[in-house]
Nucleic acid binder design. Sequence first.
DNA 1: AACACCGTAGACCACACTGGTCAATACTCA
DNA 2: TGAGTATTGACCAGTGTGGTCTACGGTGTT
Lengths: 207, 207
Amino acid sequence: MTKTFSNLEETKQQRIISAALKEFAENGFEQASTNRIVKEAGIGKGMLFYYFTNKQELFHYLVQYSLNIFMDDYIKKIDISERDFIERWKQAAQLKMQAFAKYPNAINFTGMLLLSDEVQLPDYLEAKFDELRKTGYAMLYDNIDVSLFREGIDVEKAFQLIRWSIDGYQNELTNQLKGKKFSSVDFDPYWEEFYAYLDVLKTCYYD
Amino acid sequence: MTKTFSNLEETKQQRIISAALKEFAENGFEQASTNRIVKEAGIGKGMLFYYFTNKQELFHYLVQYSLNIFMDDYIKKIDISERDFIERWKQAAQLKMQAFAKYPNAINFTGMLLLSDEVQLPDYLEAKFDELRKTGYAMLYDNIDVSLFREGIDVEKAFQLIRWSIDGYQNELTNQLKGKKFSSVDFDPYWEEFYAYLDVLKTCYYD
DNA sequence: AACACCGTAGACCACACTGGTCAATACTCA
DNA sequence: TGAGTATTGACCAGTGTGGTCTACGGTGTT
């Protein structure tokens, strides 16, 4: 990316970044179309290749950009002093939702990166990625008070089971809300429902 | 589909069906390539359009074909007289794995159908689809002995939480095993692990 | 006014691939 | 031998690709 791009007015930069993140998140690297990106961003085709030397460089820029957001606006905000596993994950879910409200495309894009296995990244990005995975893992699993759990159950397995439950709820919710305008949705009832699920989890896994 | 196709020797029919199912499952209807299908199936391009009038007719044939398999080789085999929710789902997981071992592409294809929301089907297929959903739901949720669950917990919510847990394990496993030759994998340790997870679930959700 | 320079648009390029066709041929059986 | 069927793949028009390049408008400096 050239410094021409960083000198652009913020809103235009954002329009381009958002359009590109969205396109890549929905279609992956290969299937993503630079034509659609420029159309969505409202710029001429030439400009994209004036700011970035090619599709791949644009992609790498976006990886860096959204890994930063994912890390700073989500992972690092998790309060590790909360030692109750379910409470920790509840907090994480809230933070993720906040981050998503602010940077939906960056969060989706990062999610796609974490799932996809075919993308080849240069070393410095791969390193950043590993760091995110490691930090994320620590923020979610370190310093948990295992004494809360029912006696005799395999705590490692309980971690996974709870994780799958929470992920399952979130996936089902986002799937259900897909297409809806995010700002027009009242989330309170969903949070209530979510907390009710967490209560069931506590009743079951804790004694 | 013409009767020329049904008169084909079984193995050739299967080669074509498998290739097509795989291509559609991996790429969806639009992105699926008839060129790749004929190449994978080892037939000339002309033949595909000799057997089926066009891409869409081929797709509809495959929907019918794999809905039948999904229904007869999986859903209908679930023993509804098992009233323990977790045992019922354990059984379902085993049956699904058996079906997958026999018809991997058909099962994957149906899975893709169930997730995807953009495919438009003719009425008779849509009806078949609804029936599958309804029967599947009944086979998994009807006639459950709710008295097994811990007192005071919301059973409907417990159903979902357990479902998400089991789905989570299965997804993680298939993801991990993706690319591996199916027949070369020894599944016994995975089943053991799965049963261990189910035991934790029982300890937690039942009293 | 003249010039240089930068940001911008989009027509354009060669190429890849698409679903589908069709004429030519190979095969089968009476 | 010949009628009919199965088979192939070159071919078609169309669409979309990542990327280039020319032309132009604006701005600032001389």
